[in-house]
Amino acid sequence: MSRRDIAFIISTLIAAAALAVVPTITTKESVINLLVLVYIYVMMASSWNIIGGIAGQVNLGHAAFFGLGSLVSRILWTKGWPLSISLILGALVPVAFALLIGAPSFKLRGVYFAIGTLAMAQILFITTRNLFPMISSLPTEALSTYSLAPRYYMALGMTLLTVLVVFWLSRSRWGLGMVAVREETSAAESLGVSALQHKLLALCLSALFAGLAGGVFAYYSAGYYLFFPFFPTWTFDAVMATYIGGTGTVIGPIIGAVFYVLVKEILALRFVELHPFIFGTLFILVVLFLPGGMIQIWSRLRRLLVRKSTLAPSAAKEEQVPETNMVHDRPAVE
């Protein structure tokens, strides 16, 4: 493990510890609610990033995993199953679904894969809306004892788990294989990397954490339409947050999700009608000028500083600066 890796893990743990203290400092529900939303978005963006960023398959059906996770967890939990088992099953059912749709949908490439997965998620969305048109609200006795703190810690813990697993993946042999498949599929195959296996694993892991996020949502919400988590917006939000932060990186989706939720909330307060428009424009600007996402700002700055510091003695030194690890500052497209 390199020094950078250790630094990342330590700073992640410190951040999580700091965030764990928040409920003891503030009793403002709005702050806690906002943070839970941030956590769910970080989980959604980080999990989408596994298939969409690291393995490079633009999956537009992410909401299906989130929806299935919340549906299964919510129904089991409100029927009296233990919370832990409800959440685990809520994470496993999307994985089973991913395995089912994975093999046929990976026959599709590029845009067709995106359209195919979007269609699949929409079918699931419409079916759920027809089957469960009602609001699921907690039973009165559960509502009277409803407390935010355990929900907050659950969301924080699951987010930490997601981030650490994505980090581990990005440093693993499997992660390296996924990047190879993304960059040059046939070259990767000729080196012994099975494209199908790697894409399937990426999709399953992605489904697992999106399903877990769905479970967190089901546990957190007092009442909601059961089909609500199947809304395609959940996919697009995760995709946009990932792209804004930096796809294919570990930190990018986290930064993107935090930024996305905060800006969205602020815009929604100030410009109720206009905020999707402003957001759309922002997204286009990022894609145009920062194709590597917001974390590219950092690497550009660093490159600028390095250039300045080595300008006098030797320009050749600049070339030697070790670039970041396998998952890049830069996007898939060079």
Binding site: R173, L176, G177, V179, A180, E183, E184, S186, A187, A188, L191, G192, V193, E323, M326, H328, R330, A332, E334
Partner: peptide, 18 residues
Amino acid sequence: RVFTGLTVLENLELGAFP
């Protein structure tokens, strides 16, 4: 057909995939 986005070392590591 090297992996242009990866470092030289990572390219070589991928070569040792089996």
